[in-house]
Simulated assay, not measured.
Amino acid sequence: MTKITVDIEYIKDQLKKIGYEISDCIQRENNGLNWQLKFNNSGASATIFDSNKVKNTVVNGKADEKEKKMLKQIIDDIKAKEFVVDPLNEEIISLIRSHKEDYYYDFKRQFHKKDEDLLYDIICLSNNLENRDAYLIIGVADDFEVIGIDENCKSNNIYDFMKSKKFAGDFKPEIEIKNIYYKYKKLMVIKCKATKHIPYYLVERYGGVKDNTIYTRVGDTNTPKDRSASYNEVEKLWRIHFEREHE
């Protein structure tokens, strides 16, 4: 069996990108070469072995058993090049650590209980007044504690749901669903892409989301469902639309 070459700097870099703050990396010779990682923001400690067995990381320390199990799996998968951190991961972690919400991102503790609320959030974020990519981040509480998500929600269900809705001009918000990590906890991020087709609005009402009504998001607040965006906000969205029309 060919011995794997451990790229410890690559492993450290990937762990940093998912939010682990490495306080120490000690290289040791004890029945073969290994590295011990310690963290500022976790009680776990990980020992990574340089051997012909790829998935042999040992995680100990004062972290709970779930974190130990998940961190071992993450490190082993990084070592085996079976886990690559999404390029968006660092930005999402930075937004979480900002301890605020804004016009282009919104946190939810859990999946929406009502589909109309999911639709509403996606429309508001997609119609943000700066016409930039926006993020609906699921698995983060109102006090910015990272809760994480379970595996019950399938991304295909969300794509199919959005396709089934009737939008003006048949232009629907363009979304991309990503799995992001904050340390060992998985989050779902619905990326609402900036396009020239704003403003998006329904031509057929869905629950409390009104038809022929333009919603947006100002600061950390969505337009109320029973209202429309202001005259100036609607004008700005249409101005962006026509400025980008010939792209």
Rank of each mutant, 00 (worst) to 15 (best):
E116Y: 13
Q73V: 07
C192K: 00
S94C: 11
S155D: 13
I158N: 03
F167S: 01
I74M: 06
D102H: 12
G169H: 05
L119P: 06
P87S: 00
T47M: 09
I122F: 06
Y103V: 06
A134W: 00
D115P: 03
V189L: 02
L88N: 08
E145S: 15
N156K: 12
N179I: 08
D143P: 08
Y181E: 03
D170M: 08
D170V: 01
N157K: 02
E67F: 01
R97M: 15
I138R: 11
D102A: 15
K69C: 06
D106M: 04
K114D: 14
Q73C: 01
Y120G: 03
Y105E: 05
V140L: 07
N60S: 10
G61Q: 02
K191C: 07
L187V: 06
L187P: 09
E151D: 15
N128Y: 02
C124H: 02
N157D: 10
L187N: 10
D143F: 08
D143L: 04
V85I: 05
E82Q: 15
S126P: 11
K113Q: 04
R109I: 09
K163S: 13
M70L: 12
M162K: 01
K72Q: 13
F161V: 01
K172W: 04
D142P: 03
K166E: 09
A134H: 00
Y184W: 10
D170E: 13
R109D: 14
Q110R: 11
I123V: 11
N89E: 10
E101L: 03
I123P: 02
R132Y: 07
F171S: 06
I78A: 09
K166N: 15
V54T: 13
E90D: 10
Y135P: 05
E145W: 07
I93G: 14
A63S: 14
K178W: 01
D64I: 03
K166D: 11
L95A: 08
Y159H: 05
K55E: 11
S98G: 15
E82F: 09
F83K: 09
S94M: 15
S94Y: 15
L118C: 00
D117T: 05
D76M: 01
D143V: 08
I190G: 04
N157C: 03
I74S: 04
L71A: 00
F161R: 08
I48A: 06
F83A: 02
D115E: 14
R109M: 13
L119R: 10
R109H: 12
L129T: 02
A168S: 13
K68C: 09
A134M: 00
N179V: 07
Q73A: 12
V84Y: 15
V54W: 10
Y105W: 11
Y135M: 01
P87T: 10
V58G: 09
F49S: 00
D150A: 05
A80D: 15
M188R: 13
L95E: 11
I75A: 03
V146F: 09
K62R: 14
D133L: 06
K53T: 14
I177C: 08
F111S: 02
F167N: 02
C124T: 01
S164Q: 06
K183W: 04
I78M: 04
V84H: 14
L119D: 11
K113R: 06
S126M: 11
Q73R: 14
Y105L: 06
P173E: 04
S98C: 15
K114M: 12
V58L: 12
E91H: 13
C153A: 09
V54K: 13
N128W: 03
I96G: 13
N157L: 00
K79F: 07
I177N: 12
N127P: 07
K172S: 09
E90I: 10
D133R: 01
D117R: 01
